[in-house]
């Protein structure tokens, strides 16, 4: 049986392109574990933002394989070397994707809005000084700015634009990126989320988070807002915040006593 992920020996490389590493393997393992769901999902357009060596988009195309023959794949990277290396990696595995050298999805977001069924992202998540972000070359593969969130926080609203109603987003995060805060932010946009894989390496603790539009959540969110419209919102919100402050205070108090 042919392998369902890209083979490291066939993954092309370049001195200015990030090579597959623990984070890439974790994301591909998460996709592989979710294969049955992905096939039932019947995606039409799948996209990787920041494709680097091409290991992940190639693996996604292999994981879905012939059984998802109605699927098309696209991948972007801001690093032109990375896009070329991705082409070589795809070719070496006999799979195909449309490649675009661009910043996240610049030039695509307008026409591709609401059309993408699966987005995979292994973003630059390493906390670095802010000035290291966007310097180009291989640094664009890891330099994430404060808390490693600078680029992640740019990608999320764009992913929200691109994803179809049934769209799924898989993203690599690090504990330092505060995945729970990312999930809260996405919840406000109407997304449910789940950590589908958690893996600690010598250097980092990785979380692969899957997001999907949760129409129940949106319903719940709009319920809150409908309360707001009736004029009780301020009261409700201040009560809620007092409750949480109170429990926080109690908790702290409990700790100190």
């Amino acid at each position: 049986m042919p392998s369902r992920t890209a083979q490291i020996r066939f993954v092309s490389s370049h001195p200015e392109v990030y090579e597959p590493c623990d984070d890439s393997f974790a994301l591909v393992d998460a996709l592989l574990a979710d294969r049955t769901n992905l096939l039932e999902h019947r995606p039409t357009l799948c996209m990787e933002i920041g494709c680097g060596s091409g290991y992940i988009i190639t693996s996604l195309a292999l994981i879905l394989g012939q059984e998802a023959n109605g699927a098309y794949y696209m991948a972007t990277d801001i690093n032109p070397h990375a896009v070329k290396v991705t082409r070589e990696t795809l070719d070496a595995h006999g799979v195909d994707a449309e490649l675009i050298t661009t910043d996240i999805a610049s030039g695509l977001a307008r026409r591709l809005a609401g059309l993408v069924d699966v987005i995979v992202v292994n973003p630059p998540y390493v906390p670095t000084p802010e000035e290291e972000v966007g310097r180009g070359g291989i640094a664009s593969a890891w330099a994430g700015g404060e808390n490693g969130r600078s680029v992640i926080d740019k990608i999320l609203p764009i992913a929200d634009i691109l994803l179809s109603d049934k769209g799924w987003l898989y993203m690599v995060t690090l504990t330092a990126n505060s995945p729970s805060d990312i999930c809260r932010q996405m919840r406000q946009k109407g997304y449910a989320s789940r950590i589908v894989l958690q893996r600690s390496t010598e250097e980092e603790s990785l979380h692969i988070v899957k997001f999907w539009r949760d129409f129940d959540t949106q319903g719940a969110a709009s319920d809150i807002y409908s309360v707001k419209k009736t004029g009780h919102a301020n009261l409700v919100e201040s009560l809620l915040s007092q409750c949480s402050q109170l429990s926080f205070w109690r908790h702290n108090n409990g700790n100190s006593s």
Binding site: P80, L99, T102, G107
Partner: peptide, 13 residues
């Protein structure tokens, strides 16, 4: 003009 080389469009600004 946004160049297309080896089948890859370059939309970098």
């Amino acid at each position: 003009k946004f160049p297309v080389n080896k089948g890859i469009p370059n939309m970098l600004l």
